[in-house]
């Protein structure tokens, strides 16, 4: 019993330490951001690499998620004779919650892990110290372009996720279950508010983009220079991001709902 508490205390201490270190690292990255944006070519190259890799799995997942939302939603709404609200339900769920959250988690699984292992391997094979020897700061040259590309990519991918998800919902709802196309779109248009609903999704996806990218580059940059160290960093990149994104999502939702 005592051992369990000790382990828990140990885990808590480690958690707080990691959080502190990540916050300091984020501070450093934000400080470097203006200079890194000046060399946008490097960011663009990474954006291309990261975005292109994630686009396919995010697109496919989005269509599936939209379809399943329409199936379940139709079933429930049908009991209240409100199936014409199916469009609203699918769109709200995607834009406010599932779009940003699932995009961030999928991004972490596809791009975050490869960023972490790439950077970890660069450290393990002396490439980062090689850069330092050439008077090139690896944070500026390697970390910043990857971090910024992730921060930019996630909101864009989340928007694509929501759009394709709504398309999937349309295919199932209108095409398969016979909901009228007219109210599907018009009710959605009337009910989804750009200022509150869409913006809350946008804010979320920005927060998640920063989280997922930060965790990935931090874990890679601080990985022990061994095979085991790099593989652990890769795992941590996805696990920490997934938990953090779900927790932050709850927090933001609570604040927004609380405000009315």
């Amino acid at each position: 019993m005592r051992a369990m508490f000790r382990d828990l205390g140990e885990a808590l201490r480690e958690f707080v330490e990691t959080l502190g270190a990540m916050t300091r690292f984020l501070g450093r990255l934000l400080w470097e951001t203006p200079a890194a944006l000046m060399r946008f070519g490097l960011v663009w190259y990474q954006l291309h690499r990261i975005g292109a890799h994630s686009l396919l799995i995010i697109g496919i997942s989005a269509v599936f998620v939209g379809m399943v939302l329409a199936l379940q939603g139709y079933h429930i709404l049908n009991q209240f004779g409100a199936t014409e609200s199916l469009g609203v339900m699918v769109a709200m769920t995607l834009v406010r919650e599932l779009g940003p959250v699932l995009t961030a988690v999928l991004f972490a699984g596809r791009a975050g892990t490869s960023l972490a292992s790439e950077i970890g391997l660069m450290r393990a094979t002396d490439q980062l110290s090689g850069m330092e020897m050439m008077a090139v700061d690896p944070v500026k040259r390697v970390i910043m372009p990857r971090f910024l590309a992730g921060v930019i990519a996630v909101p864009l991918l989340a928007a694509i996720f929501s759009a394709l998800g709504i398309f999937g919902g349309y295919v199932v709802g209108v095409g398969l279950l016979g909901v009228d196309a007219g109210p599907f779109w018009s009710q959605m248009n009337a009910a989804v508010d750009v200022r509150t609903d869409v913006m809350s999704g946008v804010w979320k996806s920005i927060a998640f983009g920063i989280t997922a990218s930060l965790v990935a580059v931090y874990e890679g940059y601080n990985a022990p220079p061994t095979a085991e160290g790099v593989s652990r960093a890769t795992t941590r990149a996805i696990v920490i991001t997934a938990v953090a994104v779900l927790a932050i999502n709850l927090l933001i939702t609570a604040i927004i709902v609380g405000e009315g």
Partner: peptide, 15 residues
């Protein structure tokens, strides 16, 4: 370091 050239024992090329 900008005035120093360094050849690493294992090359340390950027992969």
């Amino acid at each position: 370091r900008k005035r120093i050239g360094f050849l690493f024992q294992h090359g340390a090329l950027l992969t």
